[in-house]
């Protein structure tokens, strides 16, 4: 290949290349890495971060940020768990309540950011505390357990050998990809993030678009909370601490710009996968807990740095 052509090629496939490279290195170091059962294990483990990351992709694309994700995971998990005791309601009720709780908090974020004109960082930071507090109030500070089997299978069952949480992630990602690429509102999300003034001048309802992005993001967090509660078979008011940071990291690794307008769901999925592979690999290699944190941090920064260099 001519060197002039390698840049755009790297920009497009650099992350994929990094993922393949790290995976190869891991499978050489630990033969147990590259087995079907471990790869299924990895996609199960990235599901929750993946769903959060897809949701927050909308918000980052508009140029905003959402720091409340982790708390929304806890709140919606607890809210769903309260309705998921055996023999009370069909399983769809707790699922809908969880998603709704997340969506409403997301809508509240969006409302204050747009109508109240308060910076997203502050609004979602406030929501982070409020939602955590609500989760503690609803649960009385204790995990909500004794959940129905129908509810807990959501997080543990397999369909054709693929874990249900991974299928949920796939569905959310596919729907989001289609929405962002092919629906008018999706294209407006990019327009608002690219240049808000231009978007407003060309008649786009900026307030509506932002409300949409934060509500979808909240709904995804709600869904992630439901999946988490189902996976760990309890609604935990302490769950999801700092999950927003992992989710945002996955999106940024995936090439979505923190200043908005550029990126997409495909990259986000790869970012989440890269983080999942690193986590899994370091555990398989039994790297000490102290070093794991250092290695993870370096790889996250390194991946984004490489990506920036190749897109220049």
């Amino acid at each position: 290949m001519h060197p002039r052509n390698i840049r755009p090629w790297l920009a497009r496939y650099g992350l994929l290349l990094a993922l393949v490279g790290i995976s190869l290195a891991l499978s050489l170091a630990k033969p147990g890495f590259l087995t079907v059962s471990n790869l299924i294990n990895v996609i199960r483990q990235i599901s929750i971060n993946g769903i959060l990351a897809v949701g927050v992709t909308y918000v980052l694309l508009t140029g905003g940020v959402d720091l409340s994700l982790g708390s929304l995971v806890a709140l919606s998990g607890v809210a769903a768990a309260c309705w998921a005791h055996p023999g009370e309601y069909p399983v769809v009720v707790p699922v809908l309540i969880g998603v709704l709780a997340g969506a409403l908090c997301g809508a509240a974020n969006g409302a204050v950011i747009t109508w109240g004109r308060v910076a997203p960082f502050i609004v979602t930071l406030g929501m982070m505390t409020v939602a955590r507090g609500l989760a503690l109030v609803i649960s009385g500070g204790r995990p909500v357990s004794n959940l129905s089997r129908a509810f807990t299978t959501l997080g543990s069952a397999d369909l054709l050998g693929i874990p249900v949480p991974a299928l949920i992630l796939a569905a959310v990602a596919l729907a989001s990809h289609l929405c962002l690429r092919h629906l008018r509102v999706g294209r407006y999300v990019y327009a608002v993030g690219g240049n808000e003034f231009a978007a407003r001048a060309s008649g786009i309802n900026v307030v509506g678009v932002k409300l949409f992005a934060y509500t979808v993001c909240g709904a995804c967090a709600g869904l992630a909370g439901v999946v988490l509660a189902s996976r760990i078979t309890t609604g935990q008011p302490n769950a999801g601490l700092a999950y927003e940071l992992d989710a945002i990291a996955a999106v940024v690794i995936g090439g979505t710009s923190l200043s908005g307008g550029v990126g997409g769901v495909g990259g986000t999925l790869l970012g989440a996968l890269l983080m999942g592979v690193i986590n899994n690999g370091l555990d398989l290699l039994n790297v000490s807990s102290y070093y794991q944190q250092i290695v993870k941090g370096l790889i996250i920064v390194g991946a984004v740095w490489l990506d920036k260099r190749s897109t220049k």
Partner: peptide, 15 residues
């Protein structure tokens, strides 16, 4: 954390 412990255990089962 229960969720983190679950992932860790899954990885150990693989290893």
């Amino acid at each position: 954390d229960r969720a983190k412990a679950m992932s860790l255990m899954e990885n150990w089962i693989q290893a």
